[in-house]
Amino acid sequence: MEGDIAQMGQFIGAGLASVGMGGAAVGVGNVVGNFLSGALRNPSAAAGQTATMFIGIAFAEALGIFSFLVALLLMFAV
């Protein structure tokens, strides 16, 4: 492992890419939090919108998954 600058770059890059997953966490939390605050205001309408919430979660999560993918590619495929 010693003295390999390219490998160091890989690891640093992978770590930096992982930061993007935090953004996905914020996004997913935002989606669910807003869904919940809306659902508590109007619980009768909540049941019909659960699917929409999951779609929103999926879209928010997709970008986090991309950063995870970039990290993995840097670690293993470059």
Binding site: E61, A62, F66, L69
Partner: peptide
């Protein structure tokens, strides 16, 4: 995204 979401998770 459809495929990587599942595999990645």
């Amino acid at each position: 995204s459809h495929s990587i979401r599942l595999a990645g998770n």
